[in-house]
Simulated scan of single mutants.
Amino acid sequence: MKKSVLSFGTLALLAGGLWTIAVALEGAEEMAVLRAEVRAAQGYDEVDVARAVLSAAQITSFAQNLEFCGYLGLDAAGVIRSSEVVRGLVDECSPLWPDDLEVVASWHTHAAYDTGAWSEVPTVIDIEADEDEGIDGYVATPGGRFWFVDTEAMEVVQLCARGACVPVDVAYVPGSEGYIWQSYTYQELLDREAAQ
């Protein structure tokens, strides 16, 4: 009869695998809570629903340091709801277009605060992606700013200043990106990103 021999490295790998499973389960529980909170956020005012959805998503976004995203749209009864929540990467997220909603806007978070990232203002990519789909958008930042992406005017406008209506990452350092304007045109976003 042959004996199985596990090396220290194999044991460490197995233990690491178990840890990974535990982290994945914890992430799954966070996602289940987030999805329930997003499903509960519904109504007839687009901005209110966007703010409620992004407020719910911010906490998980900070904890996992990932972007979360989705679409807002009208259901058959004319109620504004979010599509399914999608977990993205640190600096991107691709929502799934819903079949059961008449889409009016996108929404996404900007993950957790990172000293090396400029994430307090929607990006050129954010406004271009919404324009390509023919919709507007909403963005929440680690500093707790709530933005509207207006693709008709091709500008982004702060609906709420830092910490006024969506959660703030506790690690966020005020002023780390300099002065943040109330709004930026598409050209101003291009200039801002070119200067970074």
Rank of each mutant, 00 (worst) to 15 (best):
G9Q: 09
T10L: 10
L13M: 11
L14Y: 09
L14R: 13
A15H: 05
G17E: 03
W19N: 04
W19H: 04
I21A: 14
V23Y: 08
V23M: 12
L25S: 09
E26S: 10
G27M: 08
G27Q: 13
G27I: 06
A28G: 13
E29W: 06
E30G: 10
E30Q: 12
M31V: 11
M31N: 09
A32S: 13
A32H: 11
L34A: 09
A36Q: 09
Y44L: 15
D45P: 08
V49T: 06
A50S: 04
R51L: 11
A57V: 07
A57H: 05
Q58C: 12
I59D: 05
T60V: 12
T60M: 15
N65I: 05
L66C: 05
E67C: 07
E67W: 06
C69N: 01
G70Y: 01
L74T: 04
A77C: 04
E84A: 15
V85A: 00
V86H: 02
V86S: 09
D91W: 14
D91K: 07
S94R: 11
P95A: 01
P95Q: 03
D100V: 02
E102M: 12
E102C: 03
S106G: 15
W107C: 00
H108R: 03
A117F: 03
S119K: 11
S119L: 09
I125P: 01
I125V: 10
D126E: 08
A129S: 08
E131D: 13
E131T: 14
I135C: 05
D136E: 08
V139E: 02
T141I: 06
P142L: 07
R145A: 09
V156F: 01
V157C: 04
Q158L: 13
L159I: 14
A161S: 15
A164Q: 14
C165L: 02
V166N: 01
V170A: 14
Y172R: 01
V173D: 06
P174H: 07
G175E: 06
E177F: 08
G178A: 07
G178D: 05
Q182S: 10
T185S: 13
T185Y: 00
E188V: 07
L190E: 15
L190W: 11
L190R: 15
R192E: 10
Q196F: 07
